[in-house]
């Protein structure tokens, strides 16, 4: 297993490089369409502003050199400074915001996976039964509803009508653990509802297949108990495709959390990125892209590890 994880870690290096290329390419593409400095400084731009921005981007040098320099400083954690406010570094901006975003995503995944798995198992044990049909209808509706609409309804209903939980703002865990949990619970639930539906659907289908398999029939023929058939025999096999689906959802949730943050007035990556786009602040977007990319890679690594834990064929092959 250690060897398997080691190989996965090594395999991340080229992926990391690819994400760096994509992030860097954003500025290159923008520049190809017209002066970045011009659009950042706006109409009636002063010469100083333009010169300042161009120096920040290092536009004088040839592209490969710019890339290597950008990559080298990114490797040390220096993602440059914000184009709109030169006194602030991009990494400090991101460091300030990403905690909220990651908290909400992680919390929503915990809720979504736990509830979704329970629902999926209930569905699969008796496909076509009353519980299955009710849960499947609920899932279909939840998948269609964007997290932020659910979050808006939730916050309106719970917070405004009932005065429950803090309806807006983000409390850091360093300030208060309970405050932190209270501040992210509603956003996380809003974001988790579609996750619940996705996990339910995937697990239902893979679990139904597993329960129809030869090995479950063979286990039944050996007198293995029902709970063991479901928990020990079918579930580990059914989880293999489900883990992959959860990984994809984690990445998607990272993007969708931006809207939920807006709903709850949480200063996370969402507002940072939206503002950056509106002011064409490309260094912030580049930096965010790189950081989010790294988070996605880490999530993928975790998925791969769980995949290996569940699937001996994958784990032992290499």
């Amino acid at each position: 297993m250690a060897r398997y994880i080691g190989i996965r870690l090594l395999a991340m290096i080229p992926l990391l490089f690819a994400i760096a290329v994509i992030s860097f390419a954003i500025a290159v593409a923008m520049e190809a369409r017209g002066s970045i400095a011009g659009s950042v400084c706006g109409e009636g731009a002063t010469i100083e502003c333009i010169a300042q921005v161009e120096r920040q981007l290092g536009l004088d040098d040839p592209m490969p050199i710019r890339f290597v320099r950008w990559l080298a400083s990114a490797a040390t954690g220096d993602l440059g400074t914000s184009l709109t406010n030169q006194s602030v570094s991009v990494s400090s901006l991101i460091a300030d915001r990403i905690g909220a975003t990651l908290s909400i995503v992680a919390y929503s995944l915990v809720i979504g996976v736990a509830v979704g798995m329970a629902m999926g198992i209930v569905s699969a044990v008796r496909p076509g039964g009353v519980a299955d049909r009710a849960l499947s209808v609920a899932s279909a509706a939840l998948i269609a509803a964007p997290g932020f609409v659910l979050a808006m309804l939730l916050s309106w209903w719970l917070a405004v009508e009932w005065g429950w939980l803090s309806p807006a703002g983000y409390t850091r865990p360093s300030e208060s653990i309970t405050g932190w949990i209270r501040s992210i619970t509603l956003p996380a639930i809003g974001l988790a509802l579609p996750t619940v539906a996705l996990v339910q659907r995937q697990l239902r289908s893979s679990m139904t297949n597993a329960l129809q398999s030869r090995y479950v029939l063979a286990a039944r023929a050996r007198g293995i108990r029902r709970t063991s058939l479901i928990g020990e025999h079918a579930l580990p096999n059914a989880m293999i495709p489900t883990v992959t689906a959860i990984g994809f959802r984690a990445a998607a949730a990272l993007g969708l959390t931006f809207t939920v943050e807006v709903v709850f007035n949480i200063n996370g990556m969402g507002t940072l990125l939206t503002n950056a786009i509106q002011t064409r602040n490309v260094t912030v977007l580049q930096g965010s892209m790189l950081v989010v990319g790294i988070v996605v890679l880490v999530v993928n690594l975790l998925v791969d590890i769980s995949y290996g834990l569940l699937n001996p064929k994958v784990r032992l092959e290499r």
Partner: peptide
């Protein structure tokens, strides 16, 4: 593997 929203943002800023 990258979030769709983020990819779209990249195209939007360009």
């Amino acid at each position: 593997s990258l979030p769709i929203v983020l990819l779209a943002m990249a195209v939007i800023i360009i």
